[in-house]
Simulated assay, not measured.
Amino acid sequence: MYSGRVAFHSAGYTLPALRWFTAPDPAPITQPGRNAVGQPEIDTIRAMTGTYRQLDNQYGGGHARDTVARYLHQEVTPLLTNGRFDHPTGQQLLNAAAELAQLAGWQAYDTAHHGIAQRYLTLALDFAHAAADDGLGAEILAAMSHQATYLGHTTAGLDLARAAGQTAHRAGLPVLAAEAHVMQAHALAKANDERACATALHHAEQTLDRADRSTDPQWLSYFDEAYLSAKFGHCFHALGRNTHAERFATRSLRMNDRFVRGKAFNLALLANIHAHQGQPDRACAIGAQALTLTTQLRSARAVRYLRDLQTQLAPHRRLPAVRHFTGRINATLGPRR
């Protein structure tokens, strides 16, 4: 299990991404271990991963992060190292392990353990390669891009998003290609390349419109119109196009309520946009909704979005609404350091 403080390095994703494209096709996966592994064990891993993913969306990455890591290392890894299985079973086992490792990485990212997240996402990509699963590989590369762009490494974020796009095309999954376009757009917006960002957003919208969602893997169910609208909102907000950003951020709130963390993010985004537009009262009213949801979460990202809002509202600190709201933030999240 990864523990302690591990530093994130954007270059740390270069070799895994290169290896994803250049490594030879994986050898047949068979293992003559002591303990027989079959469909029941694989179904259990998938069911556990699905449950942990629901908890992650509802309560944030910090809620079950240690439990997921323990399950991966103490229950799943021994099946990979000591199990007995044929090639089809081995592929499914590695695929299930890749999904679980990706979730462990995503939870570490959400709780600001970025170096640990990097290690888990790299492990997940290695598992996906061994399982010869391009679809899951594209999703993991997109997650790597998401993290890199969030941390300000826009060049790495863009490169990883392009790698995700090429892999999605290879997998024949248009919805993953749409996701990759969105990740490219976000990195381009952060780099202030408005024209290229607009092109990427256009491709994302077109690609998603053409996608047949009936065969989507379960782990891709979050990627819908509300998620796409949120990413459009983030892109336009980063570019200073706040009228467009407001429209998409508002649309993003037409979402499934089980994605509590996502709703907290989208409310904070809309509140930030109103603050940028010189509408502190509206920003506080919507920010208060985001704060209420954030109190239910263990998510460093949700806290960061509220702290960013607090910064945007600082010029209006004398207004009663702002003074009351920022007081609530400090009372709930602790004084700002």
Results as ranks from 00 to 15, higher is better:
T154H: 13
L136H: 03
A132W: 00
A290P: 08
V76L: 09
P335L: 03
V76C: 09
Q39D: 13
A177P: 05
A245G: 09
R5C: 13
Q218K: 10
A47H: 14
T250S: 09
A178V: 10
Q277S: 14
A163Y: 07
F127E: 06
C197M: 12
L267K: 05
L291F: 00
A96T: 06
T49Y: 12
R46V: 15
Q92I: 02
A124G: 06
W219E: 04
R5Q: 15
G90W: 04
P320W: 09
F127D: 01
P217K: 00
G172I: 07
H63N: 13
R301I: 14
A302D: 05
L306K: 03
S214Y: 09
Y52N: 10
A268F: 03
Q91L: 13
R307D: 12
V68N: 00
E205T: 15
H274Y: 12
R19F: 08
A180S: 14
L176T: 07
L160W: 02
D134P: 09
V260R: 08
A171W: 03
P217V: 00
R282P: 02
H234I: 09
Y2H: 14
L141A: 02
Q147V: 06
W106F: 02
I286S: 01
T111K: 01
A290V: 10
A288F: 01
T154W: 02
P78D: 10
G90I: 01
C284A: 02
R241K: 11
V322L: 05
A96H: 06
R304K: 13
A156E: 11
G240E: 09
Y71D: 13
Y2W: 14
G4P: 05
R210H: 12
V6S: 05
N82E: 15
K231L: 10
A97K: 05
V322I: 04
P174A: 02
D133P: 01
L291A: 09
E179D: 15
D281T: 07
G327S: 08
F223C: 01
T207Q: 08
A204P: 00
A97W: 04
P40M: 11
A112L: 08
G262T: 00
A302M: 10
Q91R: 15
L173Q: 12
D66L: 15
Q91P: 00
L80A: 08
S10C: 12
D159S: 13
L188F: 00
A124E: 03
T295R: 15
L15V: 12
A198N: 10
M144R: 05
A283N: 07
T49Q: 15
D209L: 11
P16F: 06
V76Y: 03
A17W: 03
H324E: 14
Y305F: 15
H113V: 08
A283D: 06
D110V: 07
M1L: 14
N57Y: 14
I29E: 13
I140E: 03
S252G: 04
E205P: 04
A185Y: 03
L201A: 08
T295N: 14
T295W: 02
T51K: 14
